[in-house]
Write a protein that binds this DNA or RNA. Structure first.
Lengths: 211, 211
DNA sequence: GCTTTTATAATACGACGGTATCATAAAAAG
DNA sequence: CTTTTTATGATACCGTCGTATTATAAAAGC
């Protein structure tokens, strides 16, 4: 890269610091709420001075935006890792396996996914009224995933694992919307994560049964 | 009722005023966001003085809570009306008709439902981090609706309109989660309301076909 | 060794928001 | 008609937040 300066920076990587601060914001925001998170709190959480936060992100809006993109990137990364892990353990990677992994990954089953779901909801709500916050990164992810699921369904149809009369695109949209809705509901514990998982499994059973 | 005082109040109804102010908050919040909505703005929107808002709702938290309950009540009311209307127009009320009405009602197809969806998302996100905001009213609504859908599915099974092997509870949970997810996504226009409707219709076709 | 970059510290400022206070109008009760 | 209760209006207070400013230190390159 022809980077951000002629000479090397003093010691630390610029992007690394930005990530560190953005992570701090996400941690605080997941606990206290996105709007209730102040610059001073972020600085304290990141273990740096307030001035430094201003140094790396001139304005709060910029920080919020960068943190959102960071969040989307982290989640996409995690999704990729999940698929890669799937390919290593499960020898013949079935379309059902991939779809199950995707839908399940969205559930707030552990701390990381729970905070992700919370932050996602917070950013989504914020973007509905704050024009400065483009919802682009999240929507882009979602679109890509829908495409993957639809493709897997087509593959399953080609293999005869699922009825040919199904519409892959409509099914994919429905499944992802369901997973999204279940994730949000599961945050409140109604239904529980286990029940949400049961609903997903049930739907996939119905999809991949002979019928 | 053994109301709010021995003598009649001066001129206006207490509850009516509270509704008026709560409605004003919801209108402002739908446009500017829940956290960005101040007491002064609410007062201006309601056409009353700031002092009056304080008079009817001592604190902002109280106002937020009351507005949420009011919102939930309004939505439940609208749902009831929709069912009642259905019973009048569609002579034999089929389970599918009821379920279609419920799922479709959640979509942000007109201004009122759109603002409702936005406010719902905002309150939900807020309740995730603000312990003072119980999510009870919304969850209660959601639970009741799930029960209704499951009951309709059972009725359909009894009538032979849908396969007996289906699990009504899991199907109901899945359908409502899907509708919820679709509504949120439709707020951004991806997918559009029409596409979301298509997904719902498709799923119901699949449910109620012989199969 | 001087300059640039990266960092901290302390503090200031202007705006806004929730809340509180003071004053008052108007209607019902006696 | 006076008193009391209810309803309302105008404004003051105080904290917090985002942002800006100034001074300073230390490590890395030229």
């Amino acid at each position: 890269m022809k980077g951000y300066g002629e000479r090397m920076p003093k010691r630390v990587d610029h992007e690394e610091r930005r990530r560190q601060i953005a992570d701090a914001l996400l941690r605080v925001a997941a606990a206290r709420g996105l709007h209730a998170t102040g610059m001073r709190e972020v600085a304290a959480e990141a273990g740096v001075s307030l001035r430094l936060v201003q140094y790396y992100f001139g304005t709060k809006e910029e920080l919020l935006l960068a943190a959102m993109q960071h969040l989307a990137a982290r989640f996409a990364e995690r999704g990729m890792a999940r698929i890669k892990r799937l390919k290593q353990t499960e020898d013949p990677v079935t379309p059902r396996g991939v779809i199950t992994a995707i839908l399940t990954e969205a559930l707030p089953a552990d701390d990381e996914r729970r905070t992700f779901t919370i932050l996602n909801a917070a950013y989504f709500a914020l973007s509905l009224t704050d024009p400065a916050l483009a919802i682009a990164p999240l929507a882009r992810n979602s679109d890509a995933v829908t495409g993957v699921v639809a493709a897997q369904l087509r593959a399953a149809q080609a293999a005869g694992d699922t009825p040919a009369r199904l519409d892959p695109d409509l099914e994919a949209s429905g499944l992802l919307a369901m997973a999204h809705g279940l994730s949000l509901s599961a945050l409140t514990g109604q239904p529980s994560v286990e029940q949400a998982q049961a609903v997903i499994d049930y739907q996939l059973d119905r999809l991949f049964s002979a019928s």
